[in-house]
Structure formats: structure tokens, C-alpha cells
Design a protein around this nucleic acid. Structure first.
Lengths: 332, 332
DNA sequence: CTGAAAGCGCTAACAC
DNA sequence: GTGTTAGCGCTTTCAG
């Protein structure tokens, strides 16, 4: 049996209250007694039960992270930012993968609420109206990442996907490209849609004919989509909605005997770690993922502490990273 | 205020005990009453408090995962295996990154124990004698991944790193290579050491002169180490202790105007997702990471349920994956 | 089939 | 300074 505060109290010949005081660093305990208690705690290998404490204080030191898939290279850095910030603020972190399955999302959210988490960082693309209602009635603070839902009490932290895409495409156009294709992400993912819009508008503003191929946010999808793009459009440049797609596209381009960037310039989005390891090095839009995670937890913490009222949305800055895959850079 | 079982009971005009019964699907509740209670639960948006329940039953449905760094591409799949298995068994999962810092490891372990987790999956390379003692006295089930500690009560699940390395190197030697270098991982990581041993023995058994360069398990380290290996040893083949190292090495090899696999054949270890996206595709030792995670949780569950006594070590099967980077495979 | 009451390990007034 | 007491929200005998 694990020792409880009771055992410690008994053995140290003091009351549970006193043990509780030394546990909580209450200064008004005589040094002698404090030391005695501390010694007993050591001897017994006693660890206070956080759940009992939580129950008594009616507040917990746990928060939850719900994301699509930690296996997708975009997320580990985000998760790390969240985790680091959480621990810095004294929270333990629950984690759950949903694969973007709305049913699982709801299930995990409810599970976390039952665990009495103080708040949840939610990364989801598939929130339907009903789930949103559901969440809003939960009385549990929620912060969204990479996703904005208007008219809800949820804070959000994201980048300006539209602008990022517009800039990337304008950059390509500025280099003289007229045939710029776009590999888009799933329609139900807000950032994918916004990136597509940014692409479309940049093309329109330059009086160029757009060409969009829609797929999923995976390497395989990039390989696959690029095949038809190459056949139907003869692009000299490509803006992919994320790096995985870009990487897959490059693979397919090479397979067809074309070179990147000489024949087709490629630029992705996200700046996942692999982008710095691929050949050619991938040009991309760098997203401050780690910082997004940290910020999300800070917002959550504010909400939990009731520091703030009203919704808050944070737009973080992205950055165009010019590496090898879009040319004009000496092979270092 | 969040509704409690008390509110539900009151509103449904039954006792807390009855509400508890319907919560726990106790069949001996009259249908009529059950429905009434269920309806009230719905109306109130009531969610039972897991921590209160845990306190009452003295068992929890939480387990913890402590790993070095989710940002290292080896870990997400492992984490996913653990998470999936955990949820399947009804556990919520805590997660913490330690960066292999022994102090953080201890801190997080203790934090999780205080959270009353039922067990911990621990991925660590830096366990010193003292920490091991400490853990053993915790009365909390622990399962180790990728690491074995003899004479402890800890279960472990891993692969046979020695054998994996021996096979990889023998494979290279079998292809006629006589100058096979090794990029080793950190000395304090057990699997790195075992892989090095496997390499050494394979070379010795073939009467070949070994050449080892020790670094860390990173891409940058691969780039850096490969520089000197190329200058000092003129290898025709390379066995890298993990894929990141291999990928970095390939980068450096190419930078020096040499080709993979024509000039230097390369084989890595781990089979991280990026190995299937790199150019050339990386030959490697595939480790059943996902399965390691699943197995770890199963062992943990067994321990927690007291199903088993005594320590159990599981060695899972690795597999040599023959892709482009070691030659002899048509470029598909 | 349902209710009353005790208790899980801790904190937080309130006394002394 | 330290002890007493009453809960926190739930489960679990034990009655009825």
C-alpha cells in the first residue's frame, strides 16, 4: 500500500494538517517539526496524491492536447512547444490522436473533461456546428490551433495562411514563372482552403491561368497528384499546400526525368524538419510552430486563471524560406 | 459551477447511489429510473469526475509516457503505438519530454506518480543506479522501451540491436565491400552501443579492419562525422547507427561529389518515415516501433492488473529493408 | 431495486 | 504554531 498523508502524520506524531502545511511550504511551521515531517516523508517514500489534492481544492494541474496525428511531421514540434509551455506553467499534459475523426474528437474531449483537465488545446479541422455547441457548453477553456471558428468563445492561434500563400506564389511569379500549379490540401481543412485562395488571388492579380489539384496532406498524395498536373498543365513552378505534398511532388517530377528547380521550381509550406534534409533543400513558408504551441498554452493559462474575458485570436508571423527547390540560390 | 452527481440525483429525485449505478451500467436499475437519470445527465451536461472516482476506487485510468524528444522522428510512431494501445485499454495518457536529462526524468516520473498514474512507459538512456533504485521503490509499474536494465523489476521491450547491426554489416560485406565504416550513436545509449558491437564483430568475423566514428543521433552529426570518415578511411560502404545519421552522411557524401550507392553504399537503422521519402531511398533496418509501443502498454497493463509476477523482456523482430541506398536495386 | 452512510487522500477554515 | 473538523465528488457496503 502506498503511504498516505495519514501515515506520515502518524509516524511524525503530528496532525494531517501539519503535514499538509509542510507539503504546501506554509512558512508557519516550526523548523524542527518541518524537518521531522520531511524526514518521515523521505523514509516512507511518500508522494502526495495529486488527485486527492485536486478534489479538495477543486482545481487541477492538468491540461489536454488533442491533435490529428503525432506521426504527421508537422505536429511533433507543435506538441513539443505545448508540452514545454505546459510544464513550465506547472501543468501535466494529456495527449490524444484523433486522425481527424469527429467521433473520436468528441470522445477524447469528453474523456479529458471527465479527467477534470483545466483546459484543452485542440487541433482539429473537422469541427461541425454540433460539436462546437457541445464544446461551448462544456465550461472548459479551449484554445484552437491552426484554425479559427468565428462567433465562438474559443481563442485561436494561427498564421495568416492566405497571405503566406499569396506571398509564395507572388515570389514564384516574380521570378518569371507563368505556369504555376497548386497542389491543394483537403477541402475540410481551413488552412488548406485559405492557402488555395491565396494562390488563386495571386494568380488572378497577375493575370495568370491557375491550375489546382486537390488531395490530402501526404507525401503519397503529392506523388500521385503531381503525375496528372505534369500531364495536364506543364507547370514551370509549383506551390504545394504543405511540405509533404511538395516533397512527394519533387519525387514524381524527378521520376519523369525533370529537374527541380531547373524544370520545375517548387515551394512548399510548413517548414517541417525534413525540408532541411531533402534534396534539393526545400524552399517553403516557415511557420513558427513551436511558438504557436507555446502561445496556445499561454492563452489557455490566461483563460483558466480568468485573467481575460472575451475571445482572443493570435496571428503569428510566417516567413518565406528560400532554399534550393525554387532556384536562384547557389547550391551551397 | 459544473454539475456534480449530487445535482443529478436531486433533479432526478433519486439518490446519489442510484446515479452512480446508472453511470456504471449496473443492470439492476429499473429502466424507467435509468432513463430519467440519463435524461437529467443530458440536460445538465453532466460529466462524472474521473478524479473523484479514482479517489473513491483507489485506482486510476491514467498512464504516463516519458520519452526523450517527440521531435526526433523515431519517436512519433512509437508514441502513437503507445497512445493507441492505451486508449484501447481505456487509459488516458500523460506525456513528457526529457531531452535525456536525468534530472528532468526523475522530476517527471515523480510528477506522474503524484498524478497517481497506474504505470509508466519509460524511454530513457540515462538511468543511473540511483534513479533505478528510486524507481524501484515507487511501487508504480514501469515498462522500458529500447533499453534493458538487468536485475530490476522493470519489464522491457526492444529489438536485438546487436544482431540487427551484425546482419546489416554482413549484408554489406556480402556485396563485396571491404571498407565498411560505422557511424555510431552516443556511448550512453544502450542500443547505439549494441549496434556498434554488432558492427565490430561482423567486421572481425570477416577479417576486415573496422572504422568507427562516434557522434550523436542527429542529421547534423551525420553530416559532420561523415566528413572525417571520408577523409580518413575511404569507405565503399557505411553502416549508420540510425537513419538520421545515414541521411546526414549521404548529404555529405554527395557534397563531396561522390554518389550513393555507386561510390558509397549506405545502410541505416530505424526505418523512420523519411527513409521512404529520401533520395536515394534509404536502405535500413526496420524496427517495429509501433508494435514496440503497443507491446509496452500491454505489458504495463498486465503488471497493473497483477496478471503477472516477475520481469518480462520482449525482443521484437527487426527486418533488413533493401532500398536504393545500398545498391543492387533497380531504381523504380 | 433503491437509499443511507462511510470513506478515498487531501485542503481549509476555525479553534486552541 | 498546531490540531479538529468538515467537506471535495464519487463508490460501496449494508439495509430495507
Amino acid at each position: 500500500m502506498k503511504p498516505t498523508i495519514h501515515h506520515v502524520a502518524e509516524r511524525a506524531q503530528v496532525s494531517k494538517a501539519t503535514v499538509s502545511r509542510v507539503l504546501n511550504r506554509n512558512p508557519q511551521v516550526k523548523d524542527e517539526i518541518r524537518e521531522r515531517v520531511l524526514r518521515v516523508i523521505e523514509e516512507l517514500g511518500y508522494h502526495p496524491s495529486a488527485i486527492a489534492r485536486n478534489l479538495a481544492t477543486n482545481k487541477t494541474n492538468m491540461i489536454g492536447l488533442i491533435l490529428p496525428d503525432i506521426t504527421n511531421p508537422y505536429f511533433p514540434v507543435l506538441a513539443r512547444g505545448i508540452e514545454d509551455a505546459a510544464h513550465r506553467l506547472g501543468y501535466a499534459l494529456f495527449i490524444s490522436n484523433t486522425d481527424n475523426d469527429p467521433k473520436l474528437e468528441r470522445e477524447y474531449i469528453h474523456k479529458m473533461v471527465e479527467q477534470q483537465v483545466g483546459g484543452i488545446v485542440l487541433i482539429s479541422s473537422t469541427l461541425d456546428e454540433q460539436t462546437v455547441q457541445d464544446l461551448a457548453s462544456l465550461r472548459t477553456p479551449i484554445v484552437l490551433c491552426d484554425r479559427l471558428i468565428a462567433n465562438t468563445p474559443f481563442d485561436a492561434v494561427l498564421i495568416d495562411d492566405y497571405k503566406a500563400a499569396y506571398e509564395a506564389v507572388s515570389f514564384l511569379i516574380g521570378k518569371g514563372h507563368k505556369q504555376v500549379a497548386h497542389l491543394a490540401g483537403p477541402k475540410n481543412i481551413q488552412s488548406a482552403e485559405n492557402r488555395k485562395l491565396g494562390y488563386l488571388h495571386a494568380m488572378r492579380d497577375a493575370n495568370l491561368e491557375p491550375f489546382v489539384s486537390v488531395g490530402s496532406f501526404t507525401y503519397e498524395s503529392g506523388v500521385h497528384q503531381m503525375g496528372s498536373v505534369l500531364e495536364e498543365y506543364k507547370p514551370t513552378a509549383l506551390f504545394a499546400s504543405n511540405d509533404l505534398l511538395a516533397l512527394g511532388a519533387i519525387h514524381e517530377i524527378n521520376l519523369r526525368g525533370l529537374r527541380v528547380p531547373e524544370d520545375v521550381a517548387v515551394i512548399g509550406c510548413d517548414d517541417i524538419p525534413f525540408s532541411k534534409m531533402s534534396r534539393p533543400l526545400l524552399s517553403t513558408i516557415s511557420i513558427p510552430v513551436y511558438q504557436i504551441g507555446v502561445t496556445a498554452v499561454q492563452l489557455l493559462d490566461d483563460q483558466m486563471k480568468g485573467v481575460r474575458s472575451g475571445t482572443k485570436n493570435m496571428i503569428l508571423e510566417h516567413k518565406l524560406i528560400h532554399r534550393e527547390s525554387c532556384g536562384g540560390v547557389e547550391n551551397k
